[in-house]
Structures are given as structure tokens and as C-alpha cells.
Design a binder for these strands. Sequence first.
DNA 1: TTGTATGCGTTATCAC
DNA 2: GTGATAACGCATACAA
Lengths: 359, 359
Amino acid sequence: MSKREDFVTINEVAEFSGVSKATVGRVIGNYGVVAEKTKQKVLSAIEKLNYVPNALAQGMRNKTTKIIAIVVGSIKNNFFTEIIYAIEQIATKNHFNVIICNSQEDIEKEIMHLKSLYSRRIDGIIIAPAYMADNKIKNENLYLYDSTIPTVLIDRKVGNLNKAVIHSDNFNGSYKATEYLISLGHKHIGVIATRNFITVNDRINGYKKALKNYKINFYEHYIEAADYEDDDSVLSAVDNLLTKNKSITAIMVLNDNLIGTILAGIKRMGLIIPDDISVLSWDDNAITKLFDITTITQQANEIGELAVKNLFEIINSEEKVHPKEIILETNLIERKSCRSQDDIKVLQEVYNGSYYGNE
Amino acid sequence: MSKREDFVTINEVAEFSGVSKATVGRVIGNYGVVAEKTKQKVLSAIEKLNYVPNALAQGMRNKTTKIIAIVVGSIKNNFFTEIIYAIEQIATKNHFNVIICNSQEDIEKEIMHLKSLYSRRIDGIIIAPAYMADNKIKNENLYLYDSTIPTVLIDRKVGNLNKAVIHSDNFNGSYKATEYLISLGHKHIGVIATRNFITVNDRINGYKKALKNYKINFYEHYIEAADYEDDDSVLSAVDNLLTKNKSITAIMVLNDNLIGTILAGIKRMGLIIPDDISVLSWDDNAITKLFDITTITQQANEIGELAVKNLFEIINSEEKVHPKEIILETNLIERKSCRSQDDIKVLQEVYNGSYYGNE
DNA sequence: TTGTATGCGTTATCAC
DNA sequence: GTGATAACGCATACAA
């Protein structure tokens, strides 16, 4: 690799303006005293030479890099993109740069990134850890997660790391959603979700809890797994769920990147929403909006904002440990994709003749 | 701000293993000769102390940072996200970190970012410049764009910067799209587009050229501007276009982030696609797929890949100047949102009785 | 086979 | 008011 040696240094500025680099430093750093005339000489030299201080050298000297990093599972995921956006906005305002790292939900890749970030001595890390519900951080890597670099976890909490965590109330969000469907008279509620993330687990637990509280049977086969990167797996999840379980009247979708394909699958089966099947999704996006899908939303923007703000708080604090858990409420946005079962009962009774049978 | 001074240095490793730091350096850098026994001592010290070399110091010494940056208008935009994703993938494979910068299509912000990146002495920059068709780079900032830091421009070409550029063939893509609509018999084709980006200009020019070639009148009022961050502006663009110009039979949408709202607007007016109005969009996303919208696609992933690959080529080359223009073809994905006008004519003739009138 | 010494570009203390 | 200089952590030429 070719090395570039063509950046102007403070020495060249000093030479050009006929003073020592100490004086140039005083002008740049705005400290000490400099004669007005000297100052002007230096400033004009800086401008003429296009001098921009070397941040690496500053970093070494000052022990601060003005860089934070954000590590997420995928930057194609809407939820993360919105979080990153919020983080970048605020970081920039504070004159920080943001390094993005994509773990692809792979722990090895995540560790590789953390090591690289650690070596850069960045000032802070925001991470949505790629840890599944059943994973643990290996001892040999613990120093990367539990370093003295200020760290904020988002979206997912990891074991007993003593770090600030910011995430949605997945359990209650799902509980509310299930409760809502139950209130419409649904008793057979299917679920489609991706793999074993902690967040998804919480959502499934919320669903189970609601069923239990309302004394509704839970069936393991009402839950179908799907891989959002594989459309076919999503389509066949819809197929399986609805053909094997004829009594299902509503589907809860626990991940936002599934809804598009699920709608396509439902359409393919010739079913109408909400007449034949009710649908409730997670997170809001162009599709849920356009199709008037009732959905549970997370405060992605707020998660991002809170993450940076808390990170800066930690960076600026003298304390070493900052345990803290912020749990954000989810919202149920009621639209037109869920139908009351009472209507259907009426219809069925009409159809069966029993409704007017009493006349 | 609290400074951290708790990172293990090469000196501590040396001390711990009872050798000089030069020897530690030899072990880490895998150069020179080290006795096997010494090597083991050092390695175990590194592991015990969790030593990770300071990349800042390495950067100063080696004059390379292993960081590249990507500067785009918005990281919420699908097109850019896909490009960033491709870049991040390849950069990581090459042990580079990626800094993302969001210019919000604001030149001042872009310059601020470039200055910051310049100060970090990063190894390369990929930028989608925030320059409108009529903008020029001020002389005082030219050094930021025309620095010796390897640079690749994407999506948009800027004046006469002697840099590698990678972008889609917007002109011909739009020409093809217009031609396709004309071939279906459309003569009154409306356009909805965002503001004055060079890319959009090219697309409009392609549209005009096609009309001209097929001897079809061009009307300025067939082009409506809309702001994708303002749903109302999009809705009223649809409204204006279709109520003021009753003869329009097809709409071309020149930016992908508009299509969702435009579909909503069309639906609101009670129009059916493609029976009442044909729609052709730009870029492919969840919505165009779900609604079977015919669209022009750009090779976003390829643009990202080519951008990094060319960037690395420049980084590894001895040459100083790398002018180059790679123009990627767009594809017309024919789906079901555009209807042949012949069908309609037939229908109209049936309706008017003239079709069977000759019998 | 290993150790010593120097420079990368800043910042800031100390001396004049 | 200004200049000389040390230190940050690493890589490596040179010495031993």
C-alpha cells in the first residue's frame, strides 16, 4: 500500500509563518497569549497551506478520539437504520464521528469488530449485541464487552453485564397486542416470528401470558418460525399455519421485515384481510401503513437518542460503572386489519340460518 | 471529559514478559527472528494482559488508518443503505472500518464532514456529493474534494473533479421507461419527482428526449415536484397532476421514496391501477414488489461493490489521479402496473358503439 | 537473538 | 510573548 506523506503539519505552518510550533499551537488551541500580529501571520499561513490538524496525533496526546461506534445486526433493517440515524445526528452535533459495524447477527463478527474498535481507542460504543437467548459471552472476550470504554446496550440485554441498556418493553407490547385480539373475540391466534432472539422470546412470552390470563389454550403449533432473508420460508410459514390450523382467525407477526411477504402469502391463499383473517404486525413501515395494518410500534428514534445521550453522559462522567435499564413502552396503532369475531359470528349465523331462525 | 489511561501498552507487555518492547513488536508484527521460548512468553503476556495495539499510534507511525468513510445524503434512503451495506461488507473483509456520514443533502454539513475525515487521515472516501445540478464547489473547499485522499464519487458526478465516478445511466433508464410507456400507446405521461438533483435532471432529460424522438408533445405542467419528507406535498402532486391534466394516462415516478404515498394518493382519488392510470416507478422496494409496480431498477449493490473495489485499487496504486467513469445500466422490470392503451381504445370503442358499428 | 534509539504530529509545561 | 522540549504508543533501523 502506498503511504501518503503529503499532509501539512504544524511544523510547516510554523516555518511558513516564521514562528515556533508552540506559537502555532497557541493560535490553534486558543490558549496562552499571542501577539495579535503574530496571530494573523499564523492564521493566514494556516489558510494558505490548508492546514488541518492530525486527529491521530491529537488522539494520542489527548487520549480522546471523538469517535463513537454503533454495532448492529444489519444496517438494512429499518429499525436499526432509524436508530443509527438518530445517533448520527446527535453525535455530529457534538463533533463526533460515527463508525458503523455490521455484525450480521454473528457473534464472531461482532467480537472482531469490538476488537478493532477497542484498538482504535474510540470514546464510546453503542451495541445491539448479537446474543441469542441462550448464549453467553466467553471469558476470553469479556474484556471487550466489559472494558472501560463507555458502552450502552440497545434492543437486547446481555446476561449480567453492568452496562446501561435501552430497549422496548417487548413482553408487554406483545401482551397488549394479544389482549387486543382477544378483546375482539379471537381465541385462535397464530404467530409468525424469526429465530431465537431475546426480543422475540419476550414477545412470545407476552403472548403466552395473555392467553393464560384469559384462560385460552396455548398450542405450540400455533407458532411458526420464518427466516426473513428467505421469502419461501415465510410463504410456507403462512401456508403451514393456516392449512394445518383451520381454526386460526388471527395472525400476529413478531418481526417487521416479515409482513410484506406474509401479506403476499395470505393473498396467494385467496384470503381477505380482515374478513377471512386478522393480521397484527410489529413495527411500522411503508407496508403496514399502506395496507392499514394494525401494529405495535417501538420508539426507534427515542432508543437512538437515549442511547447517545446516555453514552455522552457516561463519557463525561467520572464514574466507572453505569448500570441502568431504560424500558420504553410500545404503542398499539389500531388500523383496519383486525376484525371483531362478533361480526363474524353474526355472519355465520346468518349463513347457517340460525340468526333468522328464531323469527 | 474524563480521560482514560487504562489501556495496556506495549511497554507493559514487555515488562511483564521480561523482554524489550522491540521483541514484543517482533512477535506482534511477525517479522524478524524471535526465539520460540521468548515468543511464547510474550504471547502469554499479551493474552493475560488483554493487550490490543493502539491503532492511533500505529496510524501515526504507518501513515495508514485502515478507515474509509462513506458520505451520503441520508442513511434512511433504501438506495444508499444498500450501497453502504455492500461497502461495509467488503471493507470489513479487508480489515477496514467504515465511518458513515450523513450530509442531509446539505453542502455545509458535507464540508464539515469532509474536514473532519480529512483530519483523521482516513485512507479513502466514498461520497455521493450533495451537489445540485447548478452548484459549484467553492475554491476554499476544493482541497477537501480534491485532496490526495483516495476518493470515489457515487451516484452523482461533480463538475470537473478528476475523480472516479460510479453511477447509473439515469438518462437512458428514463428514456427506456418512457419509450416503454409510449410503446403501450401512452401519449400523455405525467412525471412526479423530487427536487433538483443531477440524477433527477438526467431522468427528466431522458423523458423529454424520448418524447421528442417519438414526436410527442412535451408539456412543462406534466412534471410535478414533490418532497419525499412531506407526505402532503406528494399527495397534492398526484392531485394536481391528475385533476389539471385530464388526458394523462400514465405516471412516471422518478424517486423510489415517493411511490408509497403516490399509490395512496391514487387510491384516494378512486382510481384503479392500471385500468384508470398506469404507473411506472424508479428503484425496487417492498412496495413496488407487493403492488406489482413496473419499475426501473438501479444496481445499488453493484455500485457499492464497484465503489469500494475501485477505492482499494486507488489506495493500493502509486498513481495520483484516477479519473474514471463507470456507468451502470438500469433494468426495466415489467410487472402489472402499466396497461396498453390499445385495450382501452377497444373498450372505449365498445362503449361508444363504434367497434361493432361496422358490422 | 535481543535491546537501544528515533520519529510520526500534537499539546502544553517550563524556561527565557 | 515566544521558543525549546517531553510525552503519547508504536515500528523499525541500527547496534550489540
